[in-house]
Design a protein around this nucleic acid. Structure first.
Lengths: 247, 247
DNA sequence: CGTAGATTTGAACGTCCTCAAGTCGAGTGG
DNA sequence: CCACTCGACTTGAGGACGTTCAAATCTACG
């Protein structure tokens, strides 16, 4: 990669400061006091790392040393089975943590790939454990985040286990718009960072089915689809699809 | 229930002792020293609770106060969507923790139901957080367990998102036999605690498909099926199904 | 402006679901 | 002890939804 030196430069020198970060209200430091934030700044988040679009933040099997908070950009995580099947397990955006899968085995269990040029905050896990022994609310917030991840996974299981293609895509879009609007972006005009194939892998569908379903939603006046640019015309209609009020 | 008083008696008086529990090597206290075990005994696991077959340990929406370690018996956890769809998110046996879903919201997000008469150790979550500030290896083990739960969920997503019925059931049976043999039970002769419908809900299949697939496995000489009693005749054959070496 | 990759769309097929009937086993009461 | 009943399970037939294979279209990026 011809900008590897550029990356290295930033990895070494860019110091992140949680206390002034615009994501501090939706990231790991939620609920921390001013003093606690200062402690985090001083002892926890050491460096930032840039990850170019298409590059891996880490791969399955890599030694686990840190978890990562997305600062800018967009990621996917995916698992693969021995025979080559791949499953996208999630998409991560600003303020979300990546790498929790590695804590148990001390090796990462998924691939984390940037879907656009991105920057993450590196949170050395050892430091996180040490610091969360001192800072109660950091410990609590960390536990909350892991628990949320488990609950999120349950939601995906429900989706994969019991929903039809249209319901899956509707749920996916509503989840995406919800998370985007939490971060101050429009909930109605969105640009997908992932391909139809990646959406399909996440939703347990083939890319053709995803494409057809987009077309159908457009025909039904729920969306306007132009490649990766999606206009959500009728969010209520999407919700009704999920609540079984099909008509 | 006519043995409610009996339950109450035990809830109030039965004191569990991790240090002599036969599950201590596969439960929360893995890796703790003798002294640390003594601390846990004294300050963490206060009471045991009996849950009769078919009863809930807790339900979705209940206030979250504790996590539970299965001591004897067998549980399922399930989520439901507003429109009544239900998805079994997991089956839990001795040494496994239930209730991690409630940490984030302070309310349980799933139903936990005993599939046979069971006993759990009640681990008040507040106490767990306090104690894991002092006992490093307890904190580490707890984080490991949450991470394992996340990785397990990823495996279920892979199963639900990309596998065919036969592969799903094979994966389910292999997972079950593996966990049973870890606990000293036979890996070849197993008694299912759950109905075909519950298996189907977990695997994203209808009960008829589960039943048909059992029959097919029997016809192919992989299993001998007698209702809920399963003899695993050819575990290698099951593994080959998963690795795509179908023949 | 051309090429490679992503997306859309069509048609035939296959897996799993739905609906339905029948079997089996445990528990109950005569 | 046997008949009865209820729920769980099995099995069959037909249909639906999503997949597979294939071709056309579009876009981005060099």
């Amino acid at each position: 990669m011809d900008h590897a030196p550029y990356q290295r430069l930033h990895t070494a020198h860019c110091r992140v400061v949680c206390s002034t970060c615009n994501l501090r209200e939706i990231c790991l430091p939620v609920g921390l006091s001013r003093d606690e934030l200062a402690t985090i700044d001083a002892r926890l988040v050491a460096v930032q790392r840039k990850v170019a679009r298409g590059e891996k933040l880490f791969g399955a099997g890599d030694p686990f040393e840190a978890v990562y908070a997305v600062w800018t950009g967009f990621f996917k995580t995916c698992v693969a089975s021995r025979d080559g099947r791949e499953q996208v397990t999630g998409f991560q955006m600003g303020g979300e943590l990546i790498g929790l899968d590695g804590i148990g085995t001390r090796r990462h269990e998924v691939d984390a790939v940037a879907l656009e040029d991105s920057q993450v905050c590196v949170i050395p896990f050892e430091a996180l454990e040490v610091l969360s022994q001192e800072v109660v609310s950091l410990q609590q917030q960390f536990h909350r985040i892991m628990s949320h991840e488990i609950v999120r996974n349950h939601g995906v299981m429900l989706l994969l286990g019991s929903m039809h293609a249209e319901e899956r895509l509707a749920a996916f879009l509503l989840n995406l718009t919800h998370r985007l609007s939490t971060r101050g972006f429009s909930a109605s005009s969105i640009v997908l960072r992932m391909s139809r194939e990646e959406i399909g892998s996440f939703l347990g569908l083939k890319l053709e089915t995803v494409s057809r379903t987009f077309s159908k939603f457009q025909a039904n006046g729920l969306l306007e689809v132009q490649h990766r640019h999606i206009q959500v015309v009728d969010p209520e209609g999407l919700k009704q699809l999920l609540d079984g009020e099909a008509d």
